[in-house]
Design a protein around this nucleic acid. Structure first.
Lengths: 194, 194
DNA sequence: GCAATATTACAACAGTTGTTATGCCACCTG
DNA sequence: CAGGTGGCATAACAACTGTTGTAATATTGC
């Protein structure tokens, strides 16, 4: 196994512990135990704990981006946007673990300037992607021309974020169909009245 | 100053530290220092740290409930619901501190079953309140009859939650007017087409 | 098969944590 | 005034944290 693969394995162990026990209880020793080895391995592949946890978060984020890209592939119009958003929702139980890690990081970032900065970077990236999709839809006159695209992108992110945290705290709160229904209805409100 | 007042003072100090430094860095000593006294005071008024932090969270929650109640008073119809939701939004900079504490708690709850349970209790309470408002609106035929009120209440909470965390991470993301615009539009989609 | 390097284990470090016990001081009550 | 009580300070406790250094073991290249 290559260096990078082993690194990802360590991060996955961290990911599991964070989801199960929380971010502040994901100590080096707990992560090493989850990995089935000693802390020597963890410190060997990561300079310090922050590098490890940020790497784990980055993995989560990139997985979502990848899923969104896959869902977008070959689709067009409103359906394309919908499917991309759906990819970010915790539709299945397995997605919930990713959302747990995400929410844990959000809370952990409070009072830590550089961690907030990390989240801003990622929100920027997401907004840029969605903005581009909205711009394409507007060019095709599928959504109303007067919309503030940045605001609409932020609103979509907020809705997804709210649903995600809701599901993390209250898994039965939103079924997969209800999540999709809410997002669909939100997007429908943007459509050009033709 | 009475016992209960002093208790609240301690909780407010905790609240300030949590918002400024984060929940896991809000140690007993840090809270005592913020209060301008020793840890003896803190332990005197609270059995342990969890009792203190939960009490601080409860204060935040009840403040929001109180604001919602005040905003609802004397209003009726759609305007009443709107104003209640507005009361929960981080419209001003001062509201952001409450939201920081809330988000910090959400993240801290990951992996802690009884803390998740606490959040569920509060979400239950909020949903119940909003459900009642929606039911009243439906009785007056102001919103569509076929709506799933529980789902709609959860959706409203999710939207507010998403906006709140968005503002915490990215204060410039939503202006007060934009927040209100988004909520208003969301609610407008529920109106009976008359 | 030997040397060099990568990987891992383990122990020790200094610092911080929540909690508890003890003692001091002011205040109130009888 | 005696004595008890609530409020608070201080110190000590054991447990746990991230990090570092050292040494043992695998793996690789020649």
């Amino acid at each position: 196994m290559s260096y990078d693969d082993r690194r990802i394995e360590v991060a996955k162990a961290a990911w599991r512990v964070i989801g199960r026990e929380g971010l502040d209880r994901a100590s080096m020793r707990a992560i090493a135990q989850e990995l089935g080895s000693s802390t020597g391995v963890v410190t060997h592949y990561f300079r310090d704990k922050e590098e490890l946890t940020l790497f784990a978060l980055e993995q989560v984020f990139e997985n979502v981006l990848e899923d969104m890209k896959v869902c977008a592939k070959g689709r067009q119009g409103i359906d394309r946007l919908e499917q991309m958003i759906f990819a970010a929702l915790p539709l299945e139980a397995t997605d919930r673990e990713d959302w747990k890690v995400w929410v844990a990081f959000l809370g952990y970032s409070i009072g830590r300037k550089h961690l907030v900065q990390e989240h801003r970077k990622r929100y920027d990236f997401l907004r840029q992607i969605i903005c581009q999709e909205l711009a394409d839809l507007r060019t095709d006159k599928l959504i109303r021309a007067e919309l503030d695209l940045t605001l609409e992108a932020n609103a979509l992110i907020a809705l997804v974020d709210g649903i995600g945290t809701g599901v993390v705290i209250y898994p039965e709160q939103f079924s997969a169909e209800q999540q999709q229904y809410l997002v669909r209805r939100h997007i429908n409100a943007l459509l050009a009245s033709s």
